Amino acid sequence: MSSRLPAIASTPLDPRDCERAVHTAADGAIVTFTGTVRDHHDDRAVTALRYEAHPRAGEFLAQVCAEHRTADVRVAAQHRIGELSIGDIAVVVAVSAPHRREAFAVCAAVIDAVKAVVPIWKYETYADGTADWQNPGC
């Protein structure tokens, strides 16, 4: 991932930034996953959301990307922290490769790994006034 592209950001994310970080002339495919804040979790209406990250979360995210890179496959990812609104972009993963099948597979593997190992926590506030942490085991 380009050093100009922060892994963890407190400002809005632009998926095109990750795409530009991975694209080369050798690529026939760029697959981008963009995760957004939804207005519900299970059967509960979400009204507000905050992401918090461990100080080394960026290192974890960079490691996930590095583990999925090969000579032909490039990977970039970013995750947002702070207060987000419904519809805001929370996470972006971009993968470029010579062929689409590999780009899709790697993109899915990267977002799954991000959710499993990067220490980022989500605090949701619900319409009924209650709130709860999500991803507490990460």
Results as ranks from 00 to 15, higher is better:
residue 91 V to N: 03
residue 132 D to C: 15
residue 125 T to I: 08
residue 111 I to W: 06
residue 74 R to W: 11
residue 76 A to Q: 11
residue 115 K to Q: 05
residue 45 A to L: 12
residue 27 D to P: 02
residue 58 G to N: 07
residue 119 P to F: 05
residue 132 D to H: 13
residue 38 R to Q: 08
residue 42 D to K: 10
residue 66 A to R: 15
residue 6 P to A: 07
residue 85 S to H: 13
residue 34 T to A: 15
residue 62 A to Y: 05
residue 49 L to F: 04
residue 36 T to V: 15
residue 53 A to L: 06
residue 92 V to W: 02
residue 102 E to P: 00
residue 75 V to Q: 07
residue 137 G to D: 15
residue 73 V to Q: 10
residue 4 R to N: 10
residue 83 E to T: 12
residue 49 L to W: 06
residue 115 K to F: 01
residue 125 T to V: 14
residue 49 L to N: 08
residue 92 V to M: 02
residue 120 I to Q: 06
residue 96 S to F: 05
residue 19 E to G: 13
residue 12 P to Y: 01
residue 62 A to D: 14
residue 5 L to P: 04
residue 65 C to G: 04
residue 51 Y to R: 02
residue 129 G to V: 01
residue 49 L to I: 05
residue 101 R to E: 06
residue 22 V to S: 13
residue 92 V to H: 03
residue 47 T to Q: 03
residue 119 P to A: 02
residue 44 R to E: 07
residue 72 D to M: 11
residue 77 A to L: 08
residue 136 P to D: 07
residue 23 H to S: 09
residue 98 P to A: 06
residue 134 Q to C: 14
residue 7 A to F: 12
residue 26 A to W: 07
residue 125 T to Y: 10
residue 46 V to H: 01
residue 52 E to A: 09
residue 31 V to D: 07
residue 102 E to R: 13
residue 35 G to Q: 11
residue 133 W to M: 08
residue 3 S to T: 10
residue 21 A to K: 08
residue 97 A to P: 00
residue 108 A to K: 00
residue 115 K to N: 03
residue 118 V to R: 05
residue 125 T to N: 11
residue 132 D to L: 15
residue 107 C to H: 00
residue 100 R to E: 03
residue 12 P to Q: 03
residue 138 C to Q: 09
residue 138 C to W: 04
residue 101 R to W: 05
residue 5 L to D: 02
residue 124 E to I: 08
residue 133 W to A: 09
residue 81 I to C: 09
residue 3 S to K: 11
residue 119 P to V: 05
residue 75 V to F: 01
residue 59 E to Y: 03
residue 118 V to F: 00
residue 4 R to S: 10
residue 103 A to I: 02
residue 114 V to R: 01
residue 134 Q to S: 15
residue 7 A to G: 10
residue 44 R to H: 09
residue 59 E to H: 10
residue 24 T to W: 04
residue 72 D to C: 11
residue 19 E to H: 09
residue 134 Q to K: 15
residue 44 R to A: 10
residue 62 A to Q: 13
residue 96 S to M: 01
residue 61 L to P: 04
residue 10 S to R: 14
residue 137 G to M: 12
residue 18 C to L: 13
residue 67 E to Y: 08
residue 114 V to M: 05
residue 42 D to A: 14
residue 57 A to E: 05
residue 123 Y to S: 13
residue 37 V to H: 08
residue 128 D to N: 09
residue 37 V to T: 12
residue 59 E to V: 07
residue 86 I to N: 02
residue 72 D to V: 12
residue 120 I to S: 08
residue 71 A to W: 09
residue 13 L to Q: 07
residue 63 Q to D: 14
residue 13 L to Y: 07
residue 103 A to D: 03
residue 9 A to K: 10
residue 8 I to P: 00
residue 76 A to E: 08
residue 28 G to S: 06
residue 4 R to G: 02
residue 106 V to G: 03
residue 12 P to H: 09
residue 4 R to Y: 02
residue 80 R to V: 00
residue 129 G to W: 03
residue 109 A to M: 04
residue 90 A to Q: 04
residue 41 H to G: 01
residue 32 T to C: 12
residue 67 E to R: 15
residue 103 A to V: 06
residue 123 Y to V: 09
residue 117 V to C: 06
residue 100 R to T: 01
residue 76 A to H: 12
residue 121 W to K: 04
residue 77 A to H: 03
residue 96 S to Y: 00
residue 112 D to C: 04
residue 104 F to N: 02
residue 120 I to N: 03
residue 91 V to W: 01
residue 120 I to M: 10
residue 108 A to H: 00
residue 92 V to L: 00
residue 97 A to F: 04
residue 87 G to C: 10
residue 10 S to I: 10
